[in-house]
Design a protein around this nucleic acid. Structure first.
Length: 368
RNA sequence: CCCGACUUAGUCUAGCCUGGUUAGGGCAGUGGACUGUAGAUCCACGAAUCGCCGGUUCAAAUCCGGCAGUCGGGACCA
């Protein structure tokens, strides 16, 4: 496989940006082993924006010959008060649930979960005697203002009150990258600030700049806080419109039942004819049509036009924009296709061992 | 360590000075109506140990004392 083909895998949807494509091209051309990572706070149930979006890119990366790893950020979750801020709970969930959930997500999107390495944050820190020196080294090259601005990577508002530990989080996230000698760091676009810091700090502390790949965020199913959305503000508002665990109706989880999937999509925000901001279309594009040969099958009563099949996202989008496809029919079709896609995750978590863990997790208070 | 301000539903907040109706409102939420979806709109509804402990009083969110938390300032700067 030549560089162009590999690049195409990296850049394809749902990738939103690569910092920088040129840097990545050089890595491919030199034939160097590329070590990828994506990190997650251990924060509760895995929704499609976490599992499938990351899984999609991991599958692409693997096809491009990149070695992938998933970083289970237990310390970060602890600092950010996830799962009640209880480290024992976080560790248990990380290994017993999160790892399994991410693995099946990778599989669903066409990747090989057995070729993914899973690293627990606390293990990395225990194994690397220089880790905390790296944190300090990174911190010495950051101002307080810069760190404060970067706390949006924790899902916090910039003006929000944070405790001091939360200010240590961004430099730690950057140190994670150097400690693992990563060449390609990956995340949703919401983590961009951390990766930009890593690229800026790298030369100052004698490290190579990692290439950063950011995928777009899956839209939440709920109505955005501002509507209608001006196209010019779309970018700024996008983080508020993303799928969120703390807004239950905005998210479908990887192990949701067919009934839950159907019901959540039924309640989804979906203005007829609108293709600029439409979570249902967005999901179809990002999660369904990326799979080779996928076609969306819509079954509807004859009085509404009868059954139709859309072989490409473009054909679907055009029909919807033209009002040829009613939102309800779209929702039903997408729910059906998603239900099929997520079957492996449902099966996995239906197994007694995993079901128990999931049940336990559902009872643990999910803190923002 | 000292001084001051603040603390009312998920959230923002009114009321406190001048004790006394069911502690009011916005946003969020829930249910319904209307739409072949959702949203918008209209109607209805649920939700608050008034930070904690004690005191005064017939009666305390309201007055007094103590404690805690948050924020701001001061002190310390060998």
């Amino acid at each position: 496989m030549d560089t162009a083909e590999k690049l195409a895998y990296v850049v394809r949807s749902p990738t939103e940006e690569v910092l920088t494509e040129e840097d990545l091209r050089v890595l491919f051309d030199e034939g160097r082993a590329i070590d990828h990572y994506i990190g997650f706070e251990i924060s509760g149930l895995i929704h499609l924006g976490t599992g499938l979006m990351a899984g999609a890119k991991i599958a692409d990366f693997q096809k491009a010959g990149i070695t992938c790893r998933i970083f289970l950020a237990d310390w970060h979750a602890w600092i950010n008060n996830k799962l009640g801020g209880d480290m024992d709970t976080i560790r248990k969930v990380a290994v017993g649930y999160f790892k399994e959930g991410m693995a099946v997500s990778v599989k669903i999107m066409g990747g090989d979960p057995d070729k993914v390495r899973y690293i627990l944050g606390s293990e990395l820190y225990a194994d690397d005697p220089d880790y905390w020196a790296t944190v300090i080294n990174v911190s010495k090259n950051l101002t307080l203002a810069r760190v404060r601005k970067s706390i949006t990577i924790m899902g916090r508002q910039q003006q929000e009150d944070v405790n001091f530990a939360q200010l240590i989080y961004p430099p730690m996230q950057v140190a994670d990258i150097f400690s693992q000698d990563l060449t390609l760091v990956h995340s949703g676009i919401d983590q961009r600030k951390a990766h930009v810091i890593a690229r800026e700090v790298a030369p100052k502390i004698g490290r190579d700049k990692p290439v950063a790949v950011h995928h777009k965020l899956l839209l939440g199913l709920n109505q955005p806080p501002v509507w209608p959305v001006e196209k010019s503000q779309m970018r700024e508002l996008l983080s508020q419109m993303k799928m969120s665990k703390s807004i239950p109706k905005s998210a479908v989880f990887i192990h949701d039942s067919p009934e839950e999937i159907r019901e959540k999509l039924r309640l989804a925000f979906c203005p007829a004819g609108n293709i600029d901001f439409n979570p249902v279309l967005d999901w179809a594009q990002s999660l369904l049509f990326r799979n080779e040969g996928f076609a969306l099958e819509v079954s509807r009563p004859a009085k509404f036009g009868g059954d139709v099949v859309y072989p490409t996202f473009e054909s679907l989008q055009t029909a919807f924009a033209a009002g040829e496809l009613h939102p309800m029919d779209l929702k039903k079709a997408v729910a059906e296709a998603l239900t099929q896609l997520l079957e492996p995750a449902r099966d996995l978590f239906a197994q007694p061992r995993h079901a128990a863990m999931l049940e336990e997790l559902r009872e643990i208070k999910v803190t923002r």
